[in-house]
Structure formats: structure tokens, C-alpha cells
Amino acid sequence: MLRFIVRRLIQAIPTLFILSLLVFAWLRSLPGGPAAALLGERQTAESIARLNAAMGLDQPIYVQYIKFLGRIFTGDFGTSTVSGDPVMAEIRRSFPATIELGLCALILAVLFGIPFGYLAARRRGSFFDNATVISTLVGVAIPVFFLGFLLKYIFANQFRLLPPSGRYAVGAPDITGFATLDGLLTGDLAATSDALLHLVLPAAALATIPFAVIVRITRASVLDVMDEDFVRTAESKGLTTPVIRRRHVLRNALLPVATTIGLQTGLLLAGAVLTEKVFVWRGLGWLLATGIEQRDYPRLQALILLAAGVYVLVNLLVDISYAIIDPRVRVGR
């Protein structure tokens, strides 16, 4: 098992390397180069040449790339042109907000998605099944920003049950950056519950698509597995229904679901941009959205690399969980 993990880690290195190359190439391919992009409309040939020299852009391309890599490894992504702060500091500030939102959405999606999909499959053709299939179809199709505004309108504006935006109203002292954790750590339960209330709407909006996808995949997968010969073998042994369902059906059915969860986690980052914008949630998505609006290239470059890194990491975790569930992956080379 350890060997498997190490092998997967080694396999992740070329992926990340290629990604860094792509981001690097992307920056160089901007019209007029990064200097022109930075200078914007007030550029002159002279000012571009000066900035190029200052940024080392007059050096050979491979030297530039090695320096670029070196800066990445030391965590130096330059300075944001919007805020004037180091990009790394910005990310560190916003990271917990997005993790909090994303994790919450993912937990909601998995916690409800798998049981719903499973029950729909068990009661195939029932009212519950049909209702689930149709509503998840709507869930997949509905745009996140629209759903966000809709939830906000119903639960915040009309019924005033939940706060419409932001991460907290009271706010505990900042320790970890996770609003819910900080409240707990300082013993300020009011702050924690306040932070949780603020989480409900954006997390629900962000969780909708992954939830719907997980439901559909789980349902299809369970239906497939229930028809397998080994389930009939399990029946022929006289095993009780809970054992057959847990040990023989669900375990096999979860294999494709694990892959789906991984893919959806990657997509959560994309969903977070819209969700954070709608709910004024100052996380990475917010950072990215404002970065795009303001053409903040250092910030965008860092966020793209970060997103890619997270995606690779998530898929690594999926592969490992896959190996835990499915022995064939572990032993098969």
C-alpha cells in the first residue's frame, strides 16, 4: 500500500511540471508579453523595455523558466497589481474561506448524495426514484449563480431565515482563518453558530451540482452491481439483506462514485468562483474573480497553479481511496 502511494506521488511530479510549463508559456504568450499586460494602456516601447529588464524578461527563455520555477518553490508569486500585497499573502488570507466552503459543500454532497442514489436504486421505478432522477437532472442543469441568487432571495430576503452574504457577522478573533474553528477555539460558540449559519446558503448552492452528479452515479452503479453474479452468489449463501447490501453491493458500487467525487472536487473550485461572487464570500474564488476583472496576472498565475496542484492532490487521494476499496488496483500494476 505504501509503495502504491509513493508510486502515485512520483507520478504526480511530471503532471505538475507540465502544468508549470503551461502557465509559464501562457504568461509569455500574452500580447506584447507580461510587461505590456502589466503596463496596460499607458505603455510605451521604452517603458516596456525598462520593465522587461527589471523583470528579467530580456534573458533567454530557459533562464527565465528556471528562475520562474525557483520563485514558485520559494512561494514567491510576485505582487498583486490590484492590492499591492504579495500574492502569497493574499492566498494565505483567502484560502481558509474557500476550504471551509468547499469542504462543507463536499460533505453535504457526499453525505446526502450516496444515500439518495442508493435508495433510488433500491426502489427503482418508485415515486421516490422518479422524483430523485428528475430533481437531480434539474440540479445538474441549473447554473450555480442562478441557484445562488434564488436561495438568497427565498431564504434571506423573503423569509429572513439566513444571512444573505459574507462569512460572519460577529466574528471571533482570527486564529486559523476558519471562521467556524476560531469560534470553537476561543470558546465563542455564538461566533461558530453565526459562521455556520453564514455557510448554509453558499454551501448548499455549491453542493447542488456535485450532489446531483453523485446521486446519479451512485444510482446507476448500484443498479449495475445488483445485477452482478456475485450478488446472486451472496443470495445463495442465505446472507441477510443488510450484509448483502453493505458488503457485496455497496462496496462494489462505490468504486465509480469515488472517481466521481474526485472529479467533482476539482470542479468545486470552478463553482466556488461563482458562488463566492454571489455570496460575497472572500475566498480564492472571489480573489480569482476580481483578479480576472482587473487583469491581475501575478495573482491569476498563482491561482491557476494552486488550482492545478489541488486538482492533482485530490486525484491522488481518489486513487489511494480506490486502492483501499478495490484490491485489483493495489496488486495489478
Binding site: 452468489t233 445463495s236 442465505g238
Partner: peptide, 26 residues
Amino acid sequence: ELRNRRGRDLGMVFQDPMSSLNPVIT
């Protein structure tokens, strides 16, 4: 009642041993 008998009084061997065994359990 049938489940109490299957596997105890009645055993069955199936045709395709690959697909008739659960792949993820020893």
C-alpha cells in the same frame, strides 16, 4: 425462512467462477 435454509441446507455452485465471486472481498 428461505434465507435460513440457503447456504445451510441448499448450496449452489454457479457457472462463471470469475463473475460469481465478489472481486473486492478476500
